[in-house]
Amino acid sequence: MTVILTTSPGFGKFGRVAEAIAQNGWELVRCTDTSLPDGGVSAEIARADYLVVGLVAVTAGTLAQGKNLKAVLKHGVGVDNIDIPACTAAGLPVTNTPGANADAVAELAVGFMFGLARNMAAGHASVVSGGWARQVGTQLGGKVLGIVGLGNIGRRLARLARGLGMRVVASDPHADAAFAKEWQVEIMPLEALLAEADYVSLHVFGGADNAALIDARKLALMKPTACLMNLARGEVVDLDAVAEALTAGRLGGAAIDAYVTEPPNTSHPIFSHPRAIFMPHSGADTREAVENMGLMVVEDIATLQAGRMPARCLNAKDL
């Protein structure tokens, strides 16, 4: 029997994915124990044929334990937690699910903007504590949204923002010029975007190349009323610098969905700031997105079992 090990809490739980796994006669093993550094992978990986990856890192050491592995498949888009060169050296294809969660992440970004603009977290806390602290917020129409990373998610967010009457600017060296023209998205350097935008939404890959992309120097370029939203990876933002900017009144608000360590250490001062809101890395967590990602993973496993290379393989040319 084919054994699929997953570190993704949502894989196989929603929609047609569980049925597809059962119909194929595959065994699904979950390694999602948050009390263990690897979720429990080391105890099960020796018998796994396929590794479906959530946020637990896949290293050369992981692969050394997986003697029966035939492929590594990301249940999501970002593969910064997968050592792709090590997978290639081991002869293992690596796939991901581009576009499957774009709508979900983009919609959360819009939710963050509404939450920040209308002080929703503070309003909720006031009402449930017996208070009635009404605050005057702002509207999104006419404001400037700066999107850093105009990929699948960024483009979906741009369309939603244009529908809200926002002006949209973006920073991406590989931006789709035809899309930008159609949706009236102005492409500009990151520094210019930060100075222009009322809301900055991050949608870039993690890893060393983008570590502390938004640091104290970049934050200093932003308007003191502007809000920063990180729906990318935790390391993309210098959280210390964000907390300092909020406290000093040099930043209007922050919304965070990704953290360097997950769950994060909530003793950090940013978690007590009234103008910061948080989600537990839930950008892709809709039933629709999780089903889409799962079906793509199932399709790629079936393709591999049929002796073919999936179109979504990231290292096919090196195998």
Rank of each mutant, 00 (worst) to 15 (best):
Asp49Leu: 08
Leu190Val: 14
Asn101Gly: 09
Ser267Asp: 15
Val94Thr: 00
Ala89Gly: 02
Gly54Ala: 02
Ala109Val: 14
Leu221Ser: 04
Val29Ser: 01
Leu5Glu: 01
Ala100Trp: 05
Ala178Thr: 01
Pro269Asn: 04
Asp172Pro: 13
Asp318Tyr: 15
Met113Phe: 14
Glu262Tyr: 10
Thr261Tyr: 08
Ile153Asn: 11
Val29Asn: 08
Val237Glu: 12
Phe14Arg: 13
Met296Glu: 10
Ile187Glu: 11
Leu116Cys: 12
Ala306His: 11
Leu213Glu: 05
Val136Met: 12
Ala60Leu: 08
Ala158Glu: 02
Pro274Asp: 13
Gly146Phe: 05
Gln135Ile: 14
Leu190Asn: 12
Pro280Val: 05
Leu36Tyr: 09
Ala216Thr: 07
Tyr199Met: 14
Leu108His: 01
Tyr259Met: 01
Asn101Met: 00
Arg159Met: 15
Thr97Cys: 15
Ser171Val: 13
Asp80Glu: 04
Ile277Pro: 02
Pro98Lys: 05
Val53Lys: 07
Met279Val: 09
Met166Cys: 07
Lys218Pro: 08
Arg217Thr: 02
Ser129Glu: 13
Met120Lys: 05
Pro280Gly: 04
Asn292Cys: 04
Phe205Pro: 13
Leu63Trp: 11
Glu299Met: 07
Val128Lys: 15
Val127Asp: 05
Gly130Gln: 05
Gly131Thr: 10
Ser272Leu: 07
Arg118Gly: 06
Pro98Met: 09
Ser272Phe: 13
Val237Trp: 07
Glu288His: 12
Pro280His: 03
Thr59Gly: 09
Ala180Thr: 08
Leu202Arg: 04
Leu213Trp: 01
Val58His: 04
Pro173Ala: 10
Gly78Lys: 04
Arg16Leu: 15
Glu299Ile: 09
Gly123Tyr: 04
Met279Arg: 06
